[in-house]
Amino acid sequence: MKKYSLLLLISFIAIVARAQDDLLDELNKIQKPVANYASATFKSSRIVSGHSIETIAAKHLDFRISHRFGALNSGYQELFGLDQSQIRLGFEFGLTDRLTVGVGRNSYQKTYDYYAKYKLLRQSSGAKVMPVTVALLAAAYTNTMPSQPNARFFNNLERQTYCGQLLIARKFGERVSLQLSPSILHRNKVETENDANTLYSLGMGGRFKLTRRTSFNVEYYYTPTSVGEISLRDPQFKNALSIGFDIETGGHVFQLHFTNSKGMTEKYLIGQTEGMWQNGDIFYGFNVSRVFSFDKSAKKTHK
């Protein structure tokens, strides 16, 4: 009889143990994880002046206003650069979540720019695993300055510049994102006699998230001047180094930065950067990005 009651007790324990199993654990087991695509690797489609891997969401428009002021070392009469400014206006539209097309107008050399950026791979964890995000950028630029004695254009083809970039980025945890951007820039006509038409450059960029809405960004474009004896570009042009802060306020992203390049496009950033940090050729600048949603179907489904 003693044995019997012991067995009975064990069986009751079995029942109780079964019933006490945590239901949340049960859900843990059955719920299929969704693919967790890394979001906000960068807060904006630009790290500072160069492209980030971010594309604009489908049917969303990114309206960008960018300024680069004069050099800090231009003295008090120029209010340390604030008297001069260059502007770029950009309209960049997401055709799909992965494909963005954009046009912009730069006041410097009255240049129009056009680009298409396509996200080939998306970093993700969970249901799908991909270590990096990879995007391709194809861009073209048209200089519409009137032909001048020191910058003469004999035909419209000479006014064109092209750029191709492979953008590879990874978000390391919540705070740090890094990007590599090997680039090729081809100018149909160059500024100086010694300069090469085609430049090869390696862009590097990073984002460090400071608070939930601000981050510190760095961007460097390394364009070698020569390989051994072979000259690759006019040495008067420098590598562009920019540092800045992203401040996000709901629908806007403000990017404030200091850079030795006044360029707001790769054409200038890679090919025409003349300033040097050590000489005080530092330009203050900002980008303001405002994203609008034109996705009417989504709005309906959320009624």
């Binding site: 979001s39 489908a58 969303h60 629908g251 709005k299």
Partner: peptide, 12 residues
């Protein structure tokens, strides 16, 4: 409906 909101929801 707005992707930016989705990003803010998760990130911020």
């Amino acid at each position: 409906p707005n992707k930016l909101m989705e990003e803010h929801f998760n990130e911020n």
